[in-house]
Amino acid sequence: MTEPLLSIEDLRVHFHTDAGVVKAVDGVSWSIGPGETLGIVGESGSGKSVSALAVMGLVEVPPARYESGRILFKGRDLLTADDKERRAIRGKEISMIFQDPLTALNPVFRVGHQIAEVIQAHEKMGRIAARAKAVDLLGEVGIPNPRQRAREYPHQFSGGMRQRAMIAMALALDPLVLLADEPTTALDVTVQAQIMDLLIRLQADRGTAIVLITHDLGLVAGHADRVLVMYAGKVAELGTIDDVYYRPRHPYTLGLLKSLARMDQRRSDRLQPIVGQPPSLIRVPPGCPFNPRCPFATDICRQEMPPLEPKDGPDHLAACHHSDQLALQQSPAAS
């Protein structure tokens, strides 16, 4: 791997709430290189979005507290950088898109105006030039009639169009990293295909690194180079998609792959679910957080959190005491 562009090191973000301490991110590390796509997969409450929000400075402190960690962008730690430096990076070098574009777009301003404003905030550019660039961007993300649509308000856009507009805004300053938090979850599947197609095309044109945060293992299989599997605020497994899907070394990954109904296969007799419920981030079980649901669990799993260690090769990491046993299992993804 080349020099990473953005890397997170041993990040711990804990939320102090009435009910207790929510360990949303608890010792998470990942990195992404230029032009790469990293998938971050997890269920709701796994903390999968929190590290990205921390990169953007969107985690409110308090209730949150950074217990440890660094967020390095081109070697600069965003957590200790001064405000001016952070502002110069966030939005310009790194930008983010969200599941619901309606909450991210301001309903009282015209779409074109909002995009132009973002451009002007970072670049010395006249209003007319910024407007023209906004129209170009809307055209580039596949909005028909961009000149006219730029003068419309967000509510006049359909869900898919809004997501396109938000992508246009996020790409306005040609960022090096795009954080995409469930960008297609609220969309229909044919529109999802359009949006993913657009992201890939833009990535190819501009060499943007994309962090794709989702719960959909299919989406990651189709679009990511590497994948990070999160469980209960911790990293369960990290590796190339082929390693993780075909040679999973964490029982949670294996369990997820086994439990999925597949559209491309004739009906199997029965799905094989993961037993039990995902834990609350306030009461994460001691030892490995997955141990109460894990078919491989032994005493050591209940006592000791397994370290995230290389398995097979240096780039395939898993946090499991028994990953050797998993190596003997046939992955359900292999077809």
Partner: peptide
């Protein structure tokens, strides 16, 4: 936060976490 193209979804943080 002009830099951030999206208004920070304040609720979101607590939602996910």
């Amino acid at each position: 936060d002009q830099a951030v193209p999206a208004a920070p979804p304040v609720g979101e943080v607590t939602l996910e976490a």
